[in-house]
Design a protein around this nucleic acid. Structure first.
Lengths: 176, 176
DNA sequence: TTAAGTGCAAAAGTTTTGCACCAAG
DNA sequence: CTTGGTGCAAAACTTTTGCACTTAA
C-alpha cells in the first residue's frame, strides 16, 4: 500500500487549486518505487525518467519536487553535495535521519524515534504543524580518516566540548 | 572568553599543516562578534567585511568558511534559501537547532538537549566523532498560513501520520 | 626557502524564469 | 473556457578553479 495513490494525490492537489498531471503522477511513482534508502537529485530523476522513455523536462522536475516537498510528500535533503536530493517523506516507523562525512560526503541513514518525538514536541509547543524533521550529523568517516584527514579533532573544539558536557548531563539525568 | 583566540586558531591550523592568515583571523572575528542567532552567507560576509574596509575576496571567503566548517569551527546551515549560511559552532549550552518555514523561509532557533544527546549517542555507537549535529524542522509558519498557504495539511500526509503515531508511542512510553 | 593562501577572472553547476502552447477541471 | 502546467531556451545565482603572485612558517 503506497503512501499515495493517483487519486489521493489528485485530491490533495485539487484541494489547493492545483492539478494532477501525468508528469506529477509519474514522478510520484518513481519515488514510490525507489528502494528504501535511495534519494534522487533533480538531474538523476531526469535520467531515470528518460531511461524509461518518459519525456519530462528538467524545469517540470524542479517545479514538481519543490511543490511536493512543500506539501510534505517529499523530503528535501541537503547532503552537502552541491545539490538537493529528494526522497519520499515516510511516516513514523520508517522515518530516518542522516549522518554525513564532511570530507567525502558519504551518507549513512539511521533511525531514532526520540528525535522525531522531540521534533513533534517542538512544533506542538509552538502551535505549528510538522512537515519534515531531519537530524543531520556531520562527522568524519573512517575511510576519510584513513586517507589522512585530521587524525584527531582538536581538544578545544566546540563539539568536543559539547560531547563531554553532554555526556555529563546524560549521567546526571541517568536516562535510558 | 571567545571559543577561539588568534593563537588557539593558529595552533589548530598549524597542527594540520595549514596557516593562520590575517584573512582567516578576520573572518573568525566577524563570526565571534555576530549577535547570537545570526548567520551569514558567503556574500553577506563579504559585504560585512567590505563595510569595515576589509578587502577579502569572495574566493577566499568560500575557501575559508568551508575549511572552518570541516574543522568544526563553523556550522554550515541549509536554511532552504538557495545558499548556505554559516555561524559559530557553539558548544553544548548554546547548541541549537532550526525550524524553517517551507513557504517563506523564516527561521526560528530552538534548543533541545535531548537531540544533541541522541546525536552523540549515535556517533558513539558507530565509533565516530561528532563535528556538528543539527535538527532542521520544516513547517509552515503562522504568517505564511495567514497569507493563504494550505489552510490545513492533508489528513493522510506522511508527517501527519508520523505525528499521530509518535504521540501514541509517547504515551506508551509515558516519557517526560 | 617553499608550500600554502590569496585575488582575479573565468568556468562550472544548479535552479529559476519568461513565454508560447497545451490540457485539467 | 479559464487557469494552471509544461517545455524550451535563456538567465540568474552560487560556488569552484586555474594561475600568477604573496606570504606564513
Amino acid at each position: 500500500m503506497p503512501l499515495y495513490t493517483a487519486s489521493s494525490l489528485k485530491a490533495e492537489l485539487n484541494s489547493k487549486g492545483w492539478r494532477l498531471t501525468p508528469q506529477r503522477e509519474t514522478i510520484l511513482h518513481v519515488f514510490q518505487n525507489l528502494p528504501r534508502g535511495n534519494h534522487l537529485s533533480a538531474e538523476e530523476l531526469y535520467n531515470v525518467l528518460h531511461k524509461r522513455g518518459e519525456q519530462i523536462s528538467l524545469s517540470t522536475i524542479y517545479r514538481t519536487v519543490k511543490l511536493m516537498a512543500r506539501m510534505g510528500i517529499l523530503r528535501e535533503l541537503e547532503l552537502a553535495e552541491g545539490h538537493k536530493h529528494y526522497e519520499l517523506n515516510h511516516p513514523y516507523p520508517h522515518h530516518h535521519h542522516h549522518l554525513v562525512c564532511v570530507q567525502c560526503n558519504r551518507t549513512i541513514e539511521f533511525r531514532n524515534d526520540t528525535i522525531l518525538k522531540q521534533g513533534v514536541k517542538q512544533v506542538d509547543k509552538m502551535g505549528l504543524e510538522l512537515i519534515d524533521c531531519q537530524l543531520t550529523i556531520h562527522t568524519i568517516c573512517p575511510e576519510a580518516l584513513r586517507r589522512g584527514w585530521p587524525a584527531m579533532l582538536p581538544s578545544n573544539w566546540a563539539c568536543s566540548r559539547a560531547i563531554a558536557q553532554t555526556e555529563e548531563l546524560e549521567e546526571d539525568l541517568s536516562e535510558n
